[in-house]
Design a binder for these strands. Structure first.
Lengths: 221, 221
DNA sequence: ACCTGAACACCGTTCAAGT
DNA sequence: ACCTGAACACCGTTCAAGT
């Protein structure tokens, strides 16, 4: 049954008629993202977003059912900017086109790394990611992959991108973790210590594209 | 300067001498894991762990600096059971040996899927994962990969495993997300809807190994 | 030294009231 | 209809006190 507006008798002044909503879900999401970008994910709270908007905390619940829905809005605000238009054929091989699409997703998430943990839980409902997946599947189909092969490839690409972005922002190869590994006892960890000493020269970009190239090479045989 | 035990004058009965610690970090971790397994990650709190152990909340801070350290202990308790012994040569090709190692890691995490979000932040300090990485690097070296190639391969394998495990437990192909995708307008999402209809027949195991095989095939050329 | 309980500064959310 | 403020049931953690 559709919602019907129920006009009630007003016991108070006429100029206090039902006010129009003063906000939108978009403005909530933008305010929440501003809080996250400024104070980190730990700084996100209903109260902080309310202050950011200059309204009471409880007013947020007019626009959103609970904190989870607000988080989903933030995720969609961030992921929504991903460009899903199919790369032109002039881009080169289908591998080059997939790489371009993957790079766009990586750049989109990389623009707001603090939001990353929220995307784990809310990614699946994002229309933008669905559109992105549709475009990727299109390229894979053109490339001649079979129906099941395509699904495996899309899921593998997503798994790799998710994991790689996470490693990049939570445990970069050039970060403190690698330095700690280099200081491990070489007798117990001969390969790891040797690898850690060479790792800092490997840029995040080359690391990311190196792994992606492996996946694409595997698809090509 | 090393800590020195400072004996103080006791204004009270003699039998109330400094008590030995009644717990260990291991028991804290086990209690926290029990809470998580029973009530989910959201049920984890310092108070809940204290109740589990039958002590006061603040007693936990004798064993752990803060909640973050407790979380790290849980992660290590879970990841610590991963088997890092090098697979025997009889296992077959080096790809088969890597697959076995990756499967062990997947099984270890899969035994306590609710802990997954904690591993994102605390994985890097885990000695068990370091040992696992050392073994993987050993196999890759035997396989004839060059120094930089090995690092890229290890990081790509980790990225894939992290992302795939996450997809498996937070958005399985057979789950509600896929059903929702199947109901999208076919005109806008022709490839995705067609893929979603075929997806449920793809088991998590075949999906996981299919993607892994792509990565390993890419390494073999 | 080890453990406890009260208290503080936070949360998300319910509820009744204000216009 | 839209918004507010008090209140409730939680958090993690500090602190002073108890044995």
């Amino acid at each position: 049954m559709p919602y019907t507006y129920q006009r009630k008798r007003m016991p108070y002044a006429v100029n206090t008629m039902p006010r129009p909503r003063s906000l939108t879900q978009d403005r909530l999401a933008a305010a929440a993202l501003a809080v996250i970008d400024r104070e980190g994910l730990a700084g996100l709270s209903m109260r902080a977003v309310a202050v950011e908007l200059g309204i009471s905390t409880m007013a947020l619940y007019r626009y959103v059912q609970d904190r989870g829905e607000l988080e989903a809005l933030v995720v969609e605000l961030v992921l929504g900017s991903v460009d899903s238009t199919p790369p032109p054929a002039a881009t080169g091989t289908w591998q080059a086109r997939i790489t371009l699409l993957v790079d766009r997703l990586r750049a989109t998430v990389g623009a707001h790394p603090d939001v990353l943990p929220l995307t784990f839980t809310h990614r699946h409902r994002s229309p933008s990611v669905l559109r992105w997946g549709e475009t990727v599947l299109g390229v894979l189909t053109e490339a001649g992959l079979g129906p099941e092969e395509r699904i495996v490839a899309l899921r593998a690409l997503l798994a790799y991108v998710i994991g790689a972005i996470q490693q990049e922002h939570l445990g970069a190869l050039s970060g403190a973790g690698t330095a700690a590994i280099a200081r491990l006892p070489a007798a117990d960890f001969p390969h790891l210590t040797e690898a850690a000493r060479g790792a800092p020269s490997l840029t995040p970009d080359r690391e990311f594209h190196g792994g992606l190239a492996l996946l694409l090479a595997g698809l090509d045989r």
